[in-house]
Amino acid sequence: MPTSRILAAALLFLLGFHNAPAQAPSPDRVIVDTDIGDDIDDAFAVSLALTSPEISLAGISSSWGDTALRARMIDRMLCETGRDSIAVNAGVPTRTTTTFSQAPWARAGIARTHGDAIAFLLDQIRTHPHQLTLLALGPLTNLGAAIDRDPATFRQLRRVVLMGGSVHRGYGVSNAPPEPEYNIARDPAAAQKLFRSGVPIFMLPLDSTQLKFDEAKRSQLASVSTPLTDSLEVLIAEWSRSSHTPTPTLFDVVAAAYAISPETCPMTPLHIEVDDKGMTLPTEGSPNAQVCLQPHPEALFHLLMPRLLHQHMTGNKVCVARSVD
């Protein structure tokens, strides 16, 4: 072939390559570990994960307390929204004094057998090394158990995105001093194992997660009827009746939003030590966590609200047991 024709063919190839449509990035593979059913923020966080194409949910695991009933609640959420192909596993059961505010809705779901959350997590890591995000929205007992069972495999997680801790701010008003945060304080030993594991940690503490789902947003949610919004409306009512609180705080939603869109909560590298009371103390040393100290609320609600309001999920199965135990 003459040189001129070779050059022309090469030029056409390069032009075609340059003009080829860019392929969309494949969604991040995520497992959600949640103590859903006590506070209402877990239900919002799971709803956001279900409506976000940026992530592919490999599974949802229950953590802390009555993990069997929590898994049953997750089953019902997935059934109601037509997403029951997602694997549901039960974590380590524990004793707890926290009220399971959404237990009536959970118990009305169909009882199923669930696998071991720890075994499922480790198997997924082995199958997808350095590709899996663990979104931890509850006490860290399941994570501690996975580290105990197979620390080398656990270190092959891509990252842990964690709602937990209190760096400069405690619960309530913005100038409240730091204090042991619930998820860390329930199992400080597990948190210590995580922060010493070497896995990349992206931490969303009380400093950045106390955003309110105010009355205007609740009215927006109530204006739409879909399987997802109808489920959330009932769960909000059960939580509000039990807690005597009208306004949800979206702790876990901030962590879920970060896993989907990092622009919602910029990170600062810190070295975090966890003490035996569950304090997460910033100390001298090489950073072992990226920590969001100040969220971008507008970006978060810009992400959250359209996904809750405009996702037309369709549940097409019977999701409620004939008799409630």
Rank of each mutant, 00 (worst) to 15 (best):
S240K: 04
P21G: 12
T98W: 01
A108S: 11
V199G: 06
T226A: 02
F195I: 02
T249E: 08
P295F: 05
A87T: 15
Q102A: 14
A176Q: 15
M313D: 00
R169E: 09
L121D: 05
A255M: 03
H271D: 01
W105Q: 08
N175K: 04
D33L: 06
H114D: 02
H244G: 04
S85A: 15
F100D: 12
A71G: 10
S63L: 07
T96A: 13
D123C: 09
E179P: 00
T249V: 13
P282L: 03
D123V: 03
E179N: 03
P287N: 06
G144F: 06
E298P: 01
L69Q: 09
P104T: 12
L14C: 15
Q131M: 08
T268L: 06
L303R: 06
S4P: 07
E181K: 04
S243K: 14
I40C: 05
W64S: 11
V46A: 12
L206D: 12
Q311V: 11
V274I: 15
S242G: 00
Q131F: 05
S240V: 02
M1D: 07
G170I: 14
T245M: 07
A10H: 00
V167D: 04
D187Q: 08
P200A: 14
S240M: 08
G16C: 15
Q294A: 15
R218K: 15
G59F: 00
R158D: 10
L15C: 11
A299H: 13
A191E: 10
F13A: 15
N288K: 08
N316P: 01
G198P: 12
V167L: 13
V46N: 09
P139N: 07
L134F: 03
G198S: 06
V224R: 09
V274R: 00
I236V: 15
A190W: 00
R322C: 12
M279S: 13
S219M: 14
Y171F: 13
G37Y: 06
A257H: 02
G37P: 04
D230N: 12
G315S: 03
D39P: 01
S225A: 14
T153F: 07
E238K: 01
T81D: 02
G278N: 01
A257N: 07
D230C: 02
L135N: 04
R322I: 12
F154A: 11
V253E: 06
K193N: 05
R126F: 09
A190Q: 00
N316I: 10
T280V: 06
V160E: 03
A108D: 10
R29L: 14
N316Q: 14
E80N: 03
F13E: 14
A191D: 13
A136S: 13
V234Y: 00
V173W: 08
N142H: 02
R83I: 01
S56F: 14
L121F: 10
L157D: 13
